[in-house]
Simulated assay, not measured.
Amino acid sequence: MVVKLLFLWLLFCLSWAQEQRCLQSASSCDECIQAGCAWCNSPQAHIRCATTEKLRSTGCHGRHIYNPSGSIQVVKNDSGADPADAEPLLLQPQEVSLHLRPGVRESFPLTISKATDHPTPEPIMNLSNVPAGVQVTFSSITKGNPQLLQVSVEAAQCPRKSGASNQNRTGPWSILITPRGFSVSLKLEITLLCECNCTGSHEENSPACSHHGTVVCGQCECYVPYFGKQCQMNGDFISPQYEDLCRMGPNAPVCSGRGICVEGFCECNRRADPNEMYSGRYCECSNFDCPHHNNRLCGGNGRCACGRCVCNSEWIGSACNCSTETASCMAKNQMLCNGRGVCECGKCHCMPPHVGATCEECPDCVDVCQDHAACMECRAFRTGAKKDT
């Protein structure tokens, strides 16, 4: 029962962390899906970025939900001739195209056939042209000849939009997988799913935008000089001195004290570091003013969005300082914290009187030997408290 409750509690914590990550990534469709969430394209949506289940429960129809998933396509898979008659080694498939969503692992089988007179040790796979942040691993499914491996590919996160690397920040990239000592290779083409494909949802002069803008991914892109959530305000009729439109509230500072008001719009101040910036209707957001852990923004395990950390997968906490990894909490009996505690941030918090790294120690517990000591003394030596019973 205790184990079941701990498991349910862990699921609740992970679900809550995911919802918080989605809410913090709601400024655009791209940011939303990069956080591992789903986006609602409907102009009537009250919540845009959440889990698929949450969006459905708030009334977003399935046809308006954008939640891309990875895919694997075998491009080339020639069986070839008998390896003994041609090359000493045959790989199947020879070319694979992989669409990869960051934080989600995709796997496919790789068959290695060797010539009959060739030795069959465990192959060592060489990789070339692997982009930063992409991890390729191998695990053996069957041994012998032919041998079956599982190839797993995962990207930690989408590359940042900065510098000239923008042109190829999401691929496609070509990786070569070559067994050491051979010339044949598997070509793996990887494309990251980091951007929303909302071209099919454009609506010019949309009523949802007061006929003054275009709906893109469910949001209004207003025509000049209109602005507002539904493009309902006309900038031509705003007095330059009327700064109330640049305040978040009646007594709030103009542009949150981080910019100047120009004709009712905030122009945010620029930072000395070009990677640091203010944003938002009132310059209320920043991408650098987030909690630090170990002197790193968001612990180096996430990104800063509007003053809050959006953590990478497998990390939670206000500073992305808490790992959801549980291997370090696994006891010898393959139970988390021996069923006597809760695994938080990769560490066990034991329920008294249990202690230890995995809650397997209990100095104050009565063990079976202590429990039967009086009986054993009586039976073996005819002495002790129970000698007359």
Rank of each mutant, 00 (worst) to 15 (best):
R296W: 04
C365R: 07
C196M: 06
L110N: 00
A319V: 00
F182C: 06
D30N: 15
C29H: 09
C343I: 02
G36L: 00
Q44P: 06
K161N: 11
I72A: 09
C337A: 06
M233S: 10
E377G: 05
C320R: 00
E87A: 15
T383E: 12
A86F: 07
D388F: 06
D82K: 08
S140H: 08
T52P: 06
S42I: 03
M330D: 11
Q135M: 09
S152Y: 03
M1F: 06
A373R: 13
I175F: 06
V342L: 14
C345N: 14
G356A: 07
E154P: 05
D236H: 14
F138Y: 13
C49W: 00
E122H: 11
N41K: 14
G181D: 07
R101I: 04
G103D: 08
L297D: 07
E267W: 09
P123E: 11
H212F: 05
T178F: 08
P109W: 01
E267L: 13
C60K: 04
N197K: 13
P291F: 05
V136H: 08
K4Q: 15
E195Q: 13
V342I: 15
L186T: 04
K347R: 15
P146Y: 02
N294R: 12
G300W: 00
R281N: 10
Y66H: 14
C329N: 03
E344H: 13
E243Q: 15
C348K: 02
C350K: 00
L148E: 14
H372R: 06
A380G: 09
C290G: 10
E203K: 13
R340D: 02
A84D: 10
D78I: 02
K143T: 12
P68S: 10
